[in-house]
Design a protein around this nucleic acid. Structure first.
Lengths: 138, 138
DNA sequence: CCGAACGATACGCAGGTGCTTATCATTTGT
DNA sequence: ACAAATGATAAGCACCTGCGTATCGTTCGG
């Protein structure tokens, strides 16, 4: 039974399985995993600076630059100097970026639904809350 | 709420948090994450060949060689030619390897218990079964 | 007002990853 | 019995990752 497995191993296995299932979806929409992560992070609201965005998604701040370059060139995000601190760049989704993100997110949700097929609603709920608890006990 | 997050993002977050919490434990016992994974894979029984071991733990088969070299030099695993097919090497834990694995595993279980603190038994159970379901729906 | 701190950017380094190719010993199918 | 396949191994590759350094413009404290 899974009583023998480490929780870490289980999380890694589940995460890998999900990532593998989602990769084709992302490819079909022309986005890399990290690009999708950035769009997801910006969906609830603009990031006050690239630095906090990098910390938020746990991505290297110097590599985020090139990632944003690509997304900006694709018209999915916009960088604007923060009026209150012109060193910082506020990063936000463009209308097109919000549209693309919503579309990809819907497709990914479908894949996840498929993976969850067969699990009772109660299990799904506790799975989410359990994972959130583990992730937030940093 | 966590209803907003992708399952993949939740798994990644939880997995990362667990890995970070377990790294100091592994370091204290002088093992890398992958070395521990190998020991864990061998604990239930010897691997019939290095190739199947690599596939089992999803590690590159050519890199596994060096990993096993280290573990063998440390006296934790043993490689013996399979009598029925002398191309293959059977990999098994040594007595010392089994002891080390049990010790590290106990320490890791403690960490995981700490992370799970506050979650009711039912949630833990469903969390495990939910993760196992996701991981096995490859 | 000026030096220290800070954000964005460019660049290179070291380590880890999966993948490919080549070699050698062994097994297997015909 | 011989060619093809297979497992272990070595070596090299292309990529990704985090990290450190340097530069430049901007901000802020004394």
């Amino acid at each position: 039974m899974n009583e023998d497995d480490d929780l870490g191993a289980l999380c890694a296995g589940a995460g890998r399985a999900l990532a593998e299932a989602e990769r084709p979806v992302l490819e079909r929409h022309g986005l890399s995993m990290w690009q999708y992560v950035v769009l997801s992070a910006l969906a609830p609201g603009a990031a006050p600076s690239q630095l906090v965005l990098a910390q938020q998604i746990r991505y290297d701040k110097t590599r985020l630059i090139g990632l944003l370059d690509t997304l900006e060139a694709a018209g999915l995000v916009a960088r604007e100097p923060d009026p209150t601190d012109r060193r910082a760049r506020v990063v936000r989704l463009t209308a097109e970026g919000a549209r693309r993100h919503a579309a990809v997110r819907a497709a990914i949700r479908e894949v996840e639904e498929g993976k969850l097929a067969g699990l009772p609603a109660e299990t799904r709920r506790l799975l989410r809350s359990g994972l959130a608890h583990l992730a937030n006990t940093d």
